[in-house]
Each structure stands twice: as C-alpha cells, then as structure tokens.
C-alpha cells in the first residue's frame, strides 16, 4: 500500500469513528468532523490563528534543535566511552524517570514566563529520550566494525564519522519520532501557562468558552503538526539512511 492510500484509509477510518463518537456524545461534547472543518476554514482566514500555529511550531522546532545538538553528541560519546558512561550513568538513571513536567515551576523561575521556559522544558523532555537512544546505539556498534575502521588507518574521529554516526542514524530518527510525539502532547500543557499564543493556549481558550468546534480544530492542528514532523523525519531518513531502506 502506498503512503498516499495509507493516509486516505487512515483518515477515512478516523473520520468514521469521530463522526460516530460525535453522534453518540452530542455536539456539546464532541464536534462533528464537518463542524470542525468549517471552524478550521474560518479560523485559517484570521491572522491570530496562524500566530498560534507559528508560536507552537517555533517552540517545537527550537526544542528539537536544542535537544538534538546536546543529546546526540553526548549520547554517542557516552556510548563509545565506557569510562564516561560509568560516570554519567547513575545521574541519567536517577533523572530520566522523573516526569520533567514537575520541573515546570523551576524552569519558569529560571527562564521566565516567555518562550524560553517553554522551549527549555520541551527540550528537557526530548533530551533524555534522544540521549539514551544515541548512547545505546553507539554501544551496539560491533567490535568488528571498529576493527575494520582501525585497520584502514582510522582514528577516533574517523570512527565517529564513518562508523558510529551513520550506524546510529536510523535509531536517532526513531528516537526523534518518539520524542516528537511526547513533545507535541506536552506542548498543550506548557502552553497553558503564561502563554498568549500557541495551539495549547488556543485549545484551552476554546475550552473556557465551551467552543467545542474550536477545541477540535486545535486538536486537528496538533495532529497535522505531528504528521508534518513525522513525514519530514521520514524524508530525511530516506535521504540519509538509504542503505537501511534496501
């Protein structure tokens, strides 16, 4: 089944369930797909709606970049150095299971109520998922691959560039997909505090006004943002990990 027909089938199924749920629960609880689409079409003509989309996209993008550039190199380093991993492991294992959202007050205190605190919290959530995946993937690089590279005259940097980085890249993309899912979900929460723009705020605002079609319009936008991100990762993976798709 092609990607396109897969999406058509998934959207059709989802719309059927959604319509059925709306009919069962009533329009005051679940907006119908048609009412949501109408709302989306109206909203898409307002500048304010696009500002919400822009604010959320900006926060996710920044969090992705920050967590990627910090967690991936560190994870790959820890995965390739047993000594460094032995030192860092207890700290990672102690902090990883703690729900990062509990740090929200602290993050707000340090980074203020603006965009930075939201981005930092999202980055923190992604950081651990990327770090652990990168570390474990680097650890799984076979001794034979290391011997092979060293026998060609490669040093530690060559090992990183020609072996560790390319071999761990598929796992990094998987981690990015998983972490992005979490981040889009958490976005709703972080944007509920001290935000004037963002899809999370947009949904909460609609909630306060009992504007059910707007709530569902916001949820649809979050889902679409997820699709855009996942498809982007898929394209990047097809380009950079061609060998893994054969």
């Amino acid at each position: 089944m092609s990607n396109k027909s897969g999406y058509i089938l998934a959207v059709t199924l989802l719309l059927c369930f959604w319509q059925f749920g709306a009919m069962m629960a009533g329009p005051n609880v679940v907006a119908t797909p048609l009412a949501t689409l109408e709302k989306l079409l109206i909203e898409s003509q307002s500048q304010r709606f696009w500002k919400h989309v822009e604010a959320s996209s900006f926060r996710i993008f920044c969090a992705l970049v920050i967590s990627f550039v910090t967690a991936i190199p560190l994870g790959l380093y820890l995965g390739s150095s047993r000594r460094a991993d032995r030192i860092a492991k207890p700290l990672i294992y102690l902090t990883y299971p703690v729900p990062k959202i509990v740090f929200l007050p602290l993050v707000l205190l340090i980074f203020g109520i603006g965009d930075l605190s939201k981005i930092m919290l999202l980055s923190l959530i992604m950081f651990f998922q990327l770090l652990i995946t990168a570390r474990d993937s680097a650890r799984a690089v076979s001794k034979a691959a290391k011997y092979s590279l060293k026998s060609l005259g490669g040093n530690r940097w060559d090992l990183f560039v020609h072996v560790i980085w390319p071999s761990t890249l598929p796992s990094v993309f998987t981690a990015l997909r998983i972490a992005t899912g979490t981040v889009v979900a958490v976005l709703f929460f972080v944007e509920s505090i001290g935000a004037r723009y963002g899809i999370g705020f947009y949904i909460l605002d609609a909630w306060g006004r009992a504007d059910v079609p707007q709530i569902y319009a916001g949820i649809t936008v979050l889902a679409l943002m997820g699709v855009v991100l996942y498809e982007t990762f898929d394209i990047l993976e097809r380009v950079y990990c061609r060998w893994n798709q054969l």
């Binding site: 034979a144 691959a145 011997y147 092979s148 590279l149 060293k150 026998s151 005259g153 020609h162 072996v163 390319p166 071999s167 890249l169 990990c241 060998w243 893994n244």
Partner: peptide
C-alpha cells in the same frame, strides 16, 4: 598502532552497510 602497510580482511568482511 595499525601500520599503513598492513591490511586486514575480517571474517564477516568488515564492510560498512551504510556505505
């Protein structure tokens, strides 16, 4: 360290699947 004049072929070929 591995001298430039020595080359090695490993049992599982040692080829990199990503290249």
């Amino acid at each position: 360290q591995p001298p430039r004049e020595i080359a090695l072929v490993l049992q599982d070929y040692g080829l990199f699947p990503w290249k």
